[in-house]
Write a protein that binds this DNA or RNA. Structure first.
Length: 178
DNA sequence: CTTACGATTCCCT
DNA sequence: GGGAATCGTAAGC
């Protein structure tokens, strides 16, 4: 967990099935997307800026950004310039709190909903996964249970199949059979 | 089921 | 000033 992270796409698969918690709310990660340095769809493409600086910080930290002027999205930083977007979790811990924050269903399908349910704030950007306020527990997942697809909502590098999901779990959007 | 659109913030060109 | 790693709502098929 505090070891050197694998390349972004491998990290995205590794995080599937993991238990993620933020300040007492969380669940099992069921959908992720990988973003690498050499990737025109990544915020890190082109080098460090004020917004993306956490992506160039230490691994196993959070990268949080605002999207479309409204929603927040949460990533786990891997290698320098790389991160994994958390797109969906299966709620397990603090469901009552998540329901209070969301006030509607689904609770955590989609990066914006997930961030709202977990109470993510911009001040969480760059925070470490310290096992206390933010915790991550990896779980073994069989390769045959991993679904693959194109990333959502991007305009560049749409050919990369760097969206991953856990079979038999709820996702923000369906995975087309491949 | 699908597609379409407006809301709204802030980084980057 | 453009446009974005989205969501909720509405309307059409």
């Amino acid at each position: 967990m505090y070891s050197a992270p694998p390349p972004a796409a491998d990290l995205a698969r590794l995080l599937l099935g993991a238990e993620f918690q933020l300040r007492g709310a969380g669940g099992v990660i069921t959908e992720t997307e990988a973003y690498s340095l050499d990737d025109p769809a990544s915020h890190s493409f082109g080098g460090p800026t004020t917004r993306n600086r956490a992506m160039f910080g230490p691994p196993w930290h959070l990268y949080v950004y605002r999207i479309y002027g409204l929603h927040l999205c949460i990533n786990i930083v891997g290698r320098p310039g790389e991160a994994v977007l958390l797109r969906a979790i299966d709620p397990q811990i603090g469901c009552d709190v998540m329901q209070m924050r969301r006030n509607r269903f689904p609770l955590a399908l989609g990066p914006g909903r997930l961030a709202q349910a977990l109470g993510v704030e911009m001040s969480d950007d760059g925070k470490p996964i310290d096992g206390n306020r933010v915790s991550l527990t990896l779980n073994e997942v069989n390769t045959t249970e991993i679904l693959t697809g194109a990333r959502i909502g991007i305009s560049r590098a749409q050919d990369k199949l760097w969206r991953f999901g856990l079979a038999g779990r709820a996702h923000s959007r369906p995975f087309r059979p491949r």
